[in-house]
Design a protein around this nucleic acid. Structure first.
Length: 588
RNA sequence: GGCCCCGUAGCUCAAUGGAUAGAGCAACAGCCUUCUAAGCUGCUGGUUGCAGGUUCGAUUCCUGCCGGGGCCGCCA
């Protein structure tokens, strides 16, 4: 089903076309002046520019045509050439009926027949997830949900960091400690033990130690580089160790993402494309796209029109090891071959923008993209109160697990303060607190523009008042509570509604705007548009709720209409929260 | 040094080139014997960093400057 806004735009577009102007000028948008009208169309102004005519004369003609359409209850000319529009109550009620019976609640079908592959999560093997992984996980998962809801075929891939220098650092550190000598014995070729010589907890301790050792001692760094290169050319003992790292890490990572509610279709990593790398480099060399330079193999990607200097993409280092740019490029080949996507979206820190620009250019030059558009959807950092990237009090990196625990604890505090859930079973209260904590983190993260940094403030994020996740959950719970009571009283929810008041009209208009919010969020890869939409919906609902008492309403027609509005609002609210990855408890 | 992003109310943040730049928090004045007082109504708060330019119209596009962050060939 097309959205109300699209229908109005089409009507206005026809009017412009009939006067000899481009259809696109008919774009109708919600009015900037709700006191004057519900909608506005500004197309007459650019039309006047095209025709070099007087906007007023054009707008008169367009308005006359629009007035002939009974969908409008008001068509007025205002200002330099704006057209203010109101839609009739009958048309709104009809639209609402259609919305209520539509399972998708009017979701746009922008992705019909198209495939998007989303690369997010950003985690590495052997490293615990920390606060830096929150944004990629939360934004990526939300985009995945949104694209799917808009009709796209979506494929998500964690694309684990499992093939670079950090692997060599781990291996050489384990060698130094003599934990598992069998993997380092050049004379031994297997089979290697089934059981991992190191646990996730071991890795969490070993990796920082290895990293520090390499930083302090260049000999150790050389050793780690050598181990990396040997792993990549397939030394059996190292490969066997690597397998253990991957398996052990995956268990821990899955647990973390489960608690965040983020899921991946594919658990591939940099190493998955290892077999593709050598042929790819051969191919690039053969075609003269890759060249040797200072002992390394590079792909120059600078273009004459560049204003900024664009360093080449380094495929093979002078020590023979490959880099993440190499695996990223090979991954494009793999993804195009396996899924033939229309779009590959990389939800990765904004600071890696240049890196992706290099990889994308190399992929295009080599013709590896198929029909896929490659796009980096970067994001800003989560900062502490000092405006610098978030740290623990001690100045270290906070683990994601600890962050979630902190949020849950804060949520429990808030519940106690508000006197909510006090008499519920312990287990249920814990579950509610967990859902609130996650909602607080996610909504705070997603409601900021993707590309901007934001300040972490847990006390603010977990409030039940204001623009927060917990507030929206509470709003949903209370709507559900009204509906439960209505069911107990055997009240029916109307199918045909009769709109009478400004509060009812305001609510229905916002409900009907859902498809546009979804389309806008998709187009800009911007979940904050959904956050704005859903918060505004809750505000408008509050106004409606305050103005009209529902369960005590004596007039059956009024009560059924209003119950229908409550039901529909709850459906839309829940749906948008789901797109944001936020769960609503049954009660609070 | 070069390049990229950002600079909006006291604070945290929004705003496809369009009317009077909006929310939340904070402050102030009202509103609960009624569906969970989650809020609602009203009020206060701005030279959109500065200076130019394009445009009928600029927070938005262009140029310069100031301030903050980031990136800049063998880490990811």
């Amino acid at each position: 089903m097309t959205s109300l806004l699209d229908e109005l735009s089409a009507i206005a577009g026809e009017a412009f076309a009939a006067e000899g102007y481009p259809t696109g000028l008919g774009t109708v948008q919600p009015s900037d002046r709700p006191d004057l009208a519900q909608f506005q169309c500004n197309g007459a102004l650019p039309a006047a520019k095209i025709a070099k005519g007087n906007p007023r004369a054009i707008v008169d003609k367009i308005a006359t045509r629009l007035k002939a359409n009974p969908i409008f209850s008001q068509v007025e000319i205002a200002g330099p050439g704006f057209i203010n529009l109101d839609v009739s109550d009958e048309a709104l009620a009809r639209r609402m009926g259609a919305l209520a019976t539509d399972e998708c609640l009017g979701a746009p079908e922008t992705g019909k027949g198209k495939t998007v592959l989303i690369d997010f999560g950003g985690a590495n093997v052997a490293k615990p997830m920390h606060v830096g992984h929150l944004r990629s996980s939360v934004i990526g998962d939300s985009l995945q949900r949104l694209f799917r809801a808009d009709g796209w075929h979506t494929i998500s891939d964690v694309h684990l960091g499992d093939w670079g220098l950090q692997m060599g650092q781990l291996i050489s550190e384990i060698g130094h400690r003599g934990i598992a000598p069998i993997y380092f014995d050049p004379g031994y070729t297997g089979p290697y033990p089934q059981e991992s010589p190191v646990s996730m907890e071991d890795l969490e301790e070993i990796y920082p130690a290895a990293s520090a050792a390499c930083k302090a001692d260049t000999a150790r760094l050389q050793e780690a580089r050598r181990a990396t290169a040997e792993l990549q050319v397939g030394r059996p003992g190292y490969r066997a160790l690597w397998e253990h790292f991957f398996k052990v890490s995956r268990v821990g990572l899955e647990r973390e993402w489960d608690s965040l509610g983020a899921h991946f279709d594919l658990w591939k990593g940099e190493a998955s494309v290892e077999p593709l790398i050598a042929p790819m480099i051969e191919d690039l060399k053969a075609r003269g796209l890759a060249v040797e330079s200072e002992g390394a193999v590079i792909v120059p990607v600078a273009e004459p029109t560049d204003k900024k200097e664009m360093p080449p993409l380094i495929l093979v280092k002078s020590d023979g090891a490959v880099l993440y740019g190499t695996t990223d490029l090979a991954t494009v080949i793999d993804r195009v071959k396996s899924h033939d996507p229309d779009l590959i979206l990389y939800v990765v820190d904004q600071r890696q923008h240049t890196h992706f620009e290099q990889v994308f250019r190399a992929a295009r030059k080599a013709g590896y993209c198929g029909k896929a558009q490659l796009e980096h959807a970067g994001f800003g950092t989560m900062n502490g109160p000092d405006g610098k990237p978030f740290k623990t009090r001690a100045g270290g990196v906070m683990k994601l697990y600890d962050l979630i625990a902190m949020a849950t604890e804060e949520a429990e505090k808030r519940l106690a303060e508000a006197g909510l859930a006090a008499e519920y079973p312990e287990e249920e209260r814990k579950d509610i607190a967990r859902k609130i904590g996650i909602a607080a983190l996610k909504f705070a993260d997603l409601s900021n523009h993707r590309t901007s940094d934001y300040v972490f403030d847990l006390a603010r994020f977990t409030r039940f008042e204001g623009k927060t996740g917990p507030y929206l959950q509470y709003a949903a719970v209370r709507m559900q509570s009204i509906l439960n009571k209505a069911d107990s009283a055997d009240f029916t929810r109307g199918e045909r509604v009769v709109l009478h008041t400004p509060e009812e009209r305001g609510l229905i208009l916002q409900l009907l705007a859902l498809p546009n919010a979804m389309a806008g969020a998709e187009q800009n890869r911007a979940p904050n548009i959904l956050c704005d939409y859903v918060f505004t919906l809750a505000q408008i609902f509050s106004r409606f709720y305050t103005a009209h008492h529902i369960l005590s309403e004596k007039d059956d027609a009024l009560r059924t209409t209003r119950l229908a509005l409550v039901g529909l609002t709850l459906s839309v609210l829940t749906k948008v929260l789901t797109l944001l990855g936020i769960e609503v408890p049954k009660r609070m």
